[in-house]
Computed example of a mutant assay.
Amino acid sequence: MTTTQRDETHAPGRYADVNGVRLYHETHGSGRPMILLHGGLTSGEMFAPILPVLTAKHQVVVVDLQGHGRTADVDRPLDMALMADDVAALIDHLGLDRPDVVGFSLGGGVALHVGFRHPEKIGRLVAASAHIRRDAVYPDMLAQQGQVNAAAAEYLKDTPMYELYQRVAPRPEDFPRLLDKIGEAMRKDFDLADQVRALRVPTLVVAADADMAPPSHFVEVFELLDGGRRDGGWTGEGRPAGGHALAILPGLTHYDIDQSPLFAAVTLDFLDRGR
């Protein structure tokens, strides 16, 4: 089979060689740095509707994770811990001073792993729509995820995800391979409760009120961070000692929260408060 590599010279961003991955990233705006991580089967382009709000006071580095968008896949699993190491290496490559890390869905999981594995490299963390146990996801959604593999590529050709991949991916023919890898990753059982409990980076847990997992799951995550266990007090003395917070956003789903002004607003409020 002939494999072609799309010309990278016309991409609006840059590439960084980290951990054997040519990691695509774009930098927008100026101010305190923020790393922005997209969801599965998409790219950093998904944040276009809220990017102007985020860049008003922040330098935002939008990353395309392994195998997504303009970052070609490599010969390793699609693993959130490995992608977190890529983000940490990108922080070093760019010489950023403890940037905040904001991620949605897959990117939210990667953001959490950056907090687990590289807390000294980042400031604050926002994890949106990122469940910490596989069984927290609704059973019908788990069933759908179990059907994601290369064979599904033919049925996805009319979707925005396929259109995006064909338009920007360095190797457009790799789409079935991406489906195989992300399907395999979603079928693996996991429980991050112990790592969450040990987080020492101030973290905002965000979810839609009609997300892929119930609101109670994200409350559970907040409780692991010592949240929701007592009255907050008149001066906030009862809030979690680590500076953690929770936001359940009304009227949203897993499929539109990333573009919502509400998501941008709570993210900026958390990142900027007290600074």
Rank of each mutant, 00 (worst) to 15 (best):
N19E: 06
L164V: 06
I35K: 04
E163M: 12
D272L: 10
P99E: 09
M141H: 12
G40T: 07
Q144T: 10
G232V: 12
E237F: 01
P214H: 04
A84W: 02
V126E: 01
T253Y: 10
A11P: 00
G67D: 01
T253F: 11
D211N: 11
A245E: 08
L90W: 05
L36P: 01
T55Y: 02
R230I: 07
Q5D: 13
A84V: 02
G44W: 04
I132M: 13
T55N: 04
A169I: 03
L51Y: 07
Q195K: 15
P250A: 10
L268G: 03
R197G: 00
R275A: 14
D17L: 08
A151N: 11
G236P: 05
G146L: 03
F116W: 09
T203S: 12
D135G: 01
T9L: 09
G108P: 09
E173G: 10
F116C: 01
I50F: 13
L94F: 12
G95S: 11
G31R: 07
Q66R: 14
A152N: 05
H131W: 13
K181W: 00
A48Y: 04
G107I: 01
G69E: 06
T42F: 12
L271F: 08
R134D: 07
G274T: 07
R76T: 09
L225F: 08
V219Q: 14
H118Q: 10
P12W: 05
A16C: 09
T3K: 13
V126K: 01
G232Y: 14
P176I: 01
L271E: 08
Q166Y: 01
Q195V: 00
E8V: 11
V101A: 09
L268Y: 05
V62H: 05
T267S: 13
G236M: 12
F222P: 04
I35V: 15
A88G: 14
M34K: 07
G29M: 05
Y138D: 14
L112N: 05
V63I: 04
A185L: 06
Q5V: 13
D209V: 08
H68F: 06
P170I: 06
A151F: 02
G242F: 08
P160R: 12
L78C: 05
G233Y: 10
A130W: 06
A56R: 15
R275D: 11
A56V: 05
S129L: 00
P33E: 11
V114Q: 02
A169H: 15
D73I: 12
A72S: 11
H10Q: 15
D17A: 15
R167H: 12
D272V: 05
D211T: 09
V266M: 06
E154R: 14
M80D: 12
P52K: 12
T9I: 09
A264I: 06
E173W: 03
G233N: 12
D231P: 02
A210C: 08
P160K: 12
V18D: 09
D85A: 14
I35G: 02
V102Q: 07
L65G: 08
K188F: 00
V114F: 04
V102K: 03
V21F: 03
M161N: 14
G13M: 06
L179Q: 11
G123R: 02
L252E: 13
G107C: 04
Q195D: 15
H38L: 02
I122H: 03
V148A: 05
A150F: 08
V168R: 03
P99K: 07
E120M: 01
V101I: 12
T203A: 10
I132W: 14
R177V: 11
R230T: 14
G233V: 10
